[in-house]
């Protein structure tokens, strides 16, 4: 759960300010185009913005946070072009809801500066086995191929930017 006092971290992550969400008129056009609603999950992205604006707690396991596909259909439809998928992603990170797959992705970036797919597969092998992905292997043979990882020499430390507080300035 993200408590009211913890909303600031979401604003910091997204570079939106609380007042940026005051323009939301509640038209729900974001909900009408949301891909998550094609999954019959009945989500309303506008409700998430409202919770952040008025400072209400956000529950764990919100279906939008779990299933948002980052399709940006909401952003394209929104009269204010609010990048809701980025808000959702910030909430997800704040809630610590990242999956093993997402963690392996970031770990690879920390080690090599690039995503080394064999590493991600190895780190998530159990999930792939338990999740029933094996049956897709014949279709995925075209994606296979071995290459050694390349170690990037210069990658800005990923926490280098965390010292600033962009939420004070908002989005350009």
């Amino acid at each position: 759960m993200i408590k009211e006092k913890d909303h600031e971290i979401v604003f910091k992550y997204t570079c939106y300010r609380r007042e940026d969400f005051s323009v939301c008129v509640g038209c729900k056009i974001c909900a009408s185009v949301c891909s998550v609603n094609d999954l019959a999950l009945n989500v309303n992205p506008q409700e998430l913005l409202l919770k952040l604006f008025v400072g209400e707690k956000i529950e764990d396991d919100h279906p939008l946070v779990r299933y948002c596909t980052s399709c940006y259909r909401c952003t394209a439809a929104c009269p204010w072009q609010i990048r809701i998928p980025e808000v959702v992603r910030a909430v997800k990170e704040s809630l610590g809801m990242e999956s093993r797959f997402e963690k392996a992705f970031k770990k690879s970036l920390d080690i090599w500066g690039r995503v080394y797919e064999p590493f991600v597969v190895a780190m998530t092998a159990l999930d792939l086995l338990r999740g029933g992905y094996i049956k897709y292997m014949p279709k995925w043979m075209g994606y296979a191929g071995f290459h050694l990882p390349h170690k990037v020499k210069r990658l800005k430390p990923t926490n280098a930017s965390k010292g600033s507080n962009p939420s004070e300035e908002g989005r350009s």
Binding site: Y13, G113, K162, S164
Partner: peptide
Amino acid sequence: NCCGALEYGDRNE
């Protein structure tokens, strides 16, 4: 280096 794809919640990062 990697662009970060869709995996980062922190826009500045």
